[in-house]
Structures are given as C-alpha cells and as structure tokens.
Design a protein around this nucleic acid. Sequence first.
DNA 1: TGCAATCGTGCATAAACGTGCAATACCGGG
DNA 2: CCCGGTATTGCACGTTTATGCACGATTGCA
Lengths: 256, 256
Amino acid sequence: MSVTDATLPRERQGLILERLHRDGKVVATDLALEFKVSEDSIRRDLRDLAAQGLCRRVYGGALLAQTPVAPLGERHHERAELKRVLGRVAASLVGEKQIIFIDAGSTNTALAKALPDHRSLTVVTNAPDVATAVLGRPGFEVILLGGRLDPRIGGAIGSRTIRQAQDIRADLCFPGVCALDPVSGLWTFDEEETVLKQAMIEASGETVVIATPDKLVASATHHTAPITALTHLVVASDTDASMLERYRHAGVAVHL
Amino acid sequence: MSVTDATLPRERQGLILERLHRDGKVVATDLALEFKVSEDSIRRDLRDLAAQGLCRRVYGGALLAQTPVAPLGERHHERAELKRVLGRVAASLVGEKQIIFIDAGSTNTALAKALPDHRSLTVVTNAPDVATAVLGRPGFEVILLGGRLDPRIGGAIGSRTIRQAQDIRADLCFPGVCALDPVSGLWTFDEEETVLKQAMIEASGETVVIATPDKLVASATHHTAPITALTHLVVASDTDASMLERYRHAGVAVHL
DNA sequence: TGCAATCGTGCATAAACGTGCAATACCGGG
DNA sequence: CCCGGTATTGCACGTTTATGCACGATTGCA
C-alpha cells in the first residue's frame, strides 16, 4: 500500500517502550534486527529513553524502570501456572497465517495470551476475555462472535452465535470441554454450549483440546463430539501413562 | 467524477487526520505523494494540526497525540478518576429493567463498571472490555455484538456488527464520540464507526454522550448525528458555562 | 587472564526541517 | 472591471536530525 513502510524514529522508540512493557526487557541485537536498523541507532534510542526515565539501561539491552510485576498469590498461582504452560504448548501447534477458533474458558484465555505475535493469525472467539487477550497485538485479526453472554461460561452462546460461527472456516479449533473420555470423546454440561462447540469443530480442519487434570476424570451430561473428531490433546506431564496410551490408540496426538 | 479532483487545503488536513487515526501514524513523504503536493505543504499541515493538539509532530511525519504510556502516574490517574466520576453520573441516568447500548471506549468502560447491580439491565455492546466489566454481576444480561474487532477502537465494527445492532431496540444508548459541537452535533473519525453509531442511536429512545474535556474542543472528520439526536450530555463540572448554555439551548439535558 | 560481545565517541552523509521569497489563485470593495 | 489583501503553494537556502561506520574503551564470561 504505502510506498514507504519505514518506521519513524520516534515511533520506533514508542514501539520499543511497548515491547519493554510487555516483555519486561528488550535486547538491543533483537531490536536492531526487527526494525532493520543498526545497533547503534537502537543504542541511541535506549539511551534517550533511559534519559527520560522510561527504562533502565543495562548491558545488552534495557529493562523496565520499575519492578515488572509483583509476585502473584501462591495458591491460585499454581493452577494459573499450569494453564499458562498448557497454553504455551497448545500455542505451538498453531502455524503461520492460520484461522483459529477459540472457545470460552480460562484455559483458552491462557492459550490466547500465549499465542505468538507477528504470525498473521485470525482469532475467532465467542469470549470477550479471549478477544481482549489478543486485541491490539501485532499480527492479530480478531473476529468476535456475538450473542447473549452466559455468565457461567464467560462467552456468547445461542442460535445467533452459532449462525455466525457457521459463516467461518478455520484451520484449528480449541473447544472448551467439561469432561473427556478416551472412548466416547468430549462431553459438556449445557445444551446450547454443546451445539456451538459442534459447529466449531465441524468448521475446523483440526481440533485441539487442552485438558487440565480434573477434566480427565470428570463426567458431564451432553455428548459433544466423538473421540475421532479430536486430533490433538494437550495435558499435564504428570498424567497417568496408561490413560495417555488409550488416547494415542484412538488416533490422538498427545502433547505434554 | 469532476474534472478537478483537486483537494482543498482544509479538506486535506481532515483526510490526514483520518489517516492518522486509522494507522496511528503518518509519513510526510507518503502524504506528499498521495495528495500530489510538495512535502513543504504537508509539513505546514502537520504543523497546524499539531498546534491544535490534534497530532504529535515527529521527525519524518506525525503520530497520534495520545500519550503512548503513562509518563507519570498522576496525569493518567487523574483522567481515569475523571472518567470514573463521569461514568457514575451517566450510570444514574439508567433506569430499572432498561435495555442499553454501550459503545466501545475507555469512558464507556468506566460507565459499565459504574452501573448498579440488581436492576435487571440488559447491556448490548460491541466491546469485549465493556462486556467483561458487567459479565457475571447480579442483575445483568449481556448481549455481545460480533464482527471484526478494530484494535484502535477496541470494539467490533463493520456491516456484520451493524446488522446485529439493527435487531435490537434499546431504551438508552451511549455512543462513544471523537468530537462534539453544540451546533453540528457528534463527530467521529472513521466511516464504519460512524455508521454503527448511527444505527445505535436510531435504535434507541434516548442518547447519552459522556464527553471528557478534550472532546469539547476537538474536531473530527465524519458527521455522525445532529445535535437534536442528543438527549443527555455528561461533562466535567469545570466546563465553560457559556458552552453548556449553548447545549442546553439546543435541547440537551446537561449533567455535571 | 584472555576473548568476544557490547559500548561510547567522532565523523561523514543523507534525509528532513524551517524560513524567506516569489508566483498564483481567490475574494471583496471600489 | 479593476485592484489590493489574503491564502496557498513550490522553490532555494542554510540548519538540524538521524543514521551507519570506524576506532578504541569497557564489560561480562570462561
């Protein structure tokens, strides 16, 4: 489109600050590569920013001027940490320029946060939290599925949502799931929710389920999809080996 | 097609502003090429716009006037505090069992947080942030408008969103606004955004605009609604009295 | 200590900038 | 119709800013 997609000097400094606040640190070499300028220019940028008190200059790059994040609560931290790890593993299954369905749920929100930038991904979701997690980050296009929001699941459900979902064709989908079984497949608690997940799965090439340990032993009321619909499963590394073998035997790629 | 497709100077400045709000930056060289004028003229335009506080002049072009990150806690906090107060005032205009449209925007997010519980309100919004602010609280039903999310606005826009909005009839609507004028009414920067706000206003009985001080002196490119469409205006208490009188004269109820 | 990466400084070059000036177009009054 | 004022524009000039490279000093790590 534009003749020059060159980055303005001051704009670059702003982007550096943005990266700094997101990652907590920046590396001079990486920045030089990313913005396609010499390391000297980056050094000058960092020096200016440090002079304004906006960052702390260190050998090799810069750090946040303030302490990045206070340590979170301990108990809640552990479950969140697990979801974060599972999310990161699941995120690695996503390729460049793919269209991905992300269902509502705290685990899927963690996945959304873990998705890499600059991959030209299109994220389709019925959950405001997921949308917020990726909105505004570079290389993301976000499509929101509307409808009535169910406070229990934190996402839109209902016929209107399903109709919108049917307009989409995706490469990958990440349905939230209430229970999982190596023989019968995916189970959910709610009728409307079930139909939406089914539409989601049908519209996608591959299906990935991220299962926290509790999902592997739970049971639910509505059958959502057979185990054959599942292509990838992401679970904690301390999961029972025989259980995993049963999933592999059903043709599911298991990731730890 | 007129024979002269020459762009008027002031018109050009408006178009530059539009591009600026669309892309977050403008490059002087590109603009000169696009409008077929010398870079000197572009520089003069940018200088004028910057003098009006509508953009931030930088070497090579211009950036959005908005502060990229909070330079100091005080200023940003003060603005947040102001929005919180304005939000609370606006929230008092909402009655029991009403259906209300809430547009995207940080001020409207503050409004959503300030809405009272247990009032059987139905909130219709195109913004994930607004949805999250009220989701799960007692006495709220939330309807999400889907569509492609615009990262600059923080909400869904486009024809799909508009179609969903047209299915709704609301008591009250809170359109976000880029600029406000006691004679001409509401102004916005983006075409698609304009159409959505128009649909929103038409579908609602009353229209409330929450205007932070900067909106009252700013100017924008797209006319969104006449002043007669406005029923309530919420502004800071230190706003110029003669300005408020002009709004009251136009039949707008002003709240401080 | 030795080595490689990183840093700061000085310098040359190119791009962008501001200013002054002249040319042109538009507008209202005589 | 003419004429002076104003606004806008492009050009020339000297100035400022940003950049990359070269060189030597410094830092971190083994």
